Computed example of a mutant assay.
Amino acid sequence: MPKQSAGILAYRNIDKQLQIFLVHPGGPFWKNKDLGAWSIPKGEYEEEEDALAAAKREFEEETGQSISGDFMPLTPIKYKNGKVVQAWAVLAEIDHTNIKSNYFEMEWPPRSGKKASFEEVDRADWFDIATAKQKMVPAQVPLIEELAAMF
């Protein structure tokens, strides 16, 4: 069975302009990448786990902030590697300046035998639709398009 992830597409309306909340992955591989690197807060979950509950958990793990509201399911997307991402859109007000992400550990520098710890998410921000489409991992763009079509 392909891996599966669940995530939250938080949005808000500022002066009748739809804005999307995205996070930037932490770690050395993403440090200097911007366009095509940002994502909705999301993460993998087990088959027996409720996908929406997993999406909320992952949101909190990656941002340090809980999220609630009227979650609208979006059409799942599929990455080239076969991973399926289920996402829900929700109207929310998230403080992008106060992100407290979980950490992950990896060998760094490569082949050094040394372990280093990095934040899963190193920053977050709100973007208008056009900018979000440029910043976001290309496979996730249909999520924004589906949300925008609702307004």
Rank of each mutant, 00 (worst) to 15 (best):
E44Q: 13
K31F: 04
K42D: 03
E60Y: 09
G36S: 03
E48D: 12
F29Y: 10
V23H: 02
E58P: 03
A55G: 08
E46H: 11
R57E: 10
E46W: 01
A53H: 07
W38A: 09
V23Y: 01
F29A: 14
G36F: 01
G36H: 01
F59K: 08
A51Y: 01
S39D: 01
E44N: 12
F59N: 05
D50S: 13
E60I: 11
H24S: 12
K31Q: 14
G43K: 05
W30G: 01
G43M: 05
N32C: 00
N32T: 13
E47R: 10
A54L: 08
P41I: 09
L52V: 09
K33R: 15
D34G: 00
S39A: 11
P25L: 04
K31S: 10
K31D: 05
P28F: 06
D34N: 15
V23N: 05
G26T: 08
W30F: 14
G43P: 10
L52K: 05
G43V: 09
R57G: 03
G43Y: 01
K31N: 05
V23M: 06
P28A: 06
A37Q: 07
P25S: 05
A51I: 10
I40T: 08
G43F: 01
N32G: 00
E48A: 13
A51E: 07
Y45D: 05
E49C: 03
E60D: 07
S39W: 00
